[in-house]
Design a protein around this nucleic acid. Structure first.
Lengths: 117, 117
DNA sequence: GATTCATATTCCCTCTAAGGAATATGAATC
DNA sequence: GATTCATATTCCTTAGAGGGAATATGAATC
């Protein structure tokens, strides 16, 4: 069942953080590293896991890989992502990620979701 | 995070079926067996898994163990159970479980959630 | 074409889950 | 107190997840 594949993705904290950050817009891997302060392997592997199960999509842009939530999510995925956002709204870890992301906002506005210093 | 524990429970099809059936009301293990047509070990183990993570509660009644959804679910649990019920509404496997449960309804009305032939 | 940079993959290890067969538990009944 | 019934637990095996170190890939730049 597709639903089980979705829940498999959701039962790991790093992946929840990735999805929560992505809800704010597309992002490249190095920005995830900056926002979440986690090692590159970890982030890349979990994004790969999400990708093979259709919870994120990605596209190369020069050196960077830009990840985004699916353009046309299934009903199940849409419901569950909404539920997730609602559940973590007040969680400190997730708020911190969003705060760090907000600090990158000006740079993102200039350069798009890719590119690091 | 508690949320992750919830998703861990939701990423296995048998457990999703158990929770879906429970949403209709408390039930004993042998009735789960009848409704879901799965071996006793399997059902008992998954109920145990759900119990240790707080997704179900149980109480002994004579020979029978009556399982039910928590009386006071957390906000996260409530949201996710609602989301689940919504997602599986049209799924054949889940509908079949409910149909078999409906056939037991008259007997349940007489005897309560426990008791087998 | 060699180097650099961002990202992905491989390899190794540890841990947990899942299923089934067999057995244990605990309440009820004779 | 022995048996029966519903349920739980143990033991075994297999499979997959998760983390990190090291290495590979692929695009861009010099």
């Amino acid at each position: 069942m597709e639903l089980v594949r979705i829940y498999e993705c959701l039962c790991e904290p790093t992946r929840l953080r990735l999805l929560h950050v992505l809800a704010a817009g597309p992002l490249c891997v190095c920005h995830f590293q900056a926002v979440m302060r986690e090692p590159q392997v970890k982030i890349s592997k979990h994004l790969g896991y999400l990708r093979t199960r259709g919870l994120v999509e990605c596209e190369r842009e020069g050196n960077w890989m830009i990840y985004r939530l699916p353009a046309k999510p299934s009903r199940e995925l849409r419901s569950n992502l909404a539920c997730l956002q609602d559940c973590v709204r007040e969680n400190p870890v997730f708020r911190r990620d969003r705060a760090r992301l907000a600090k990158l906002a000006p740079r993102l506005a200039q350069t798009g979701p890719a590119c690091c210093p």
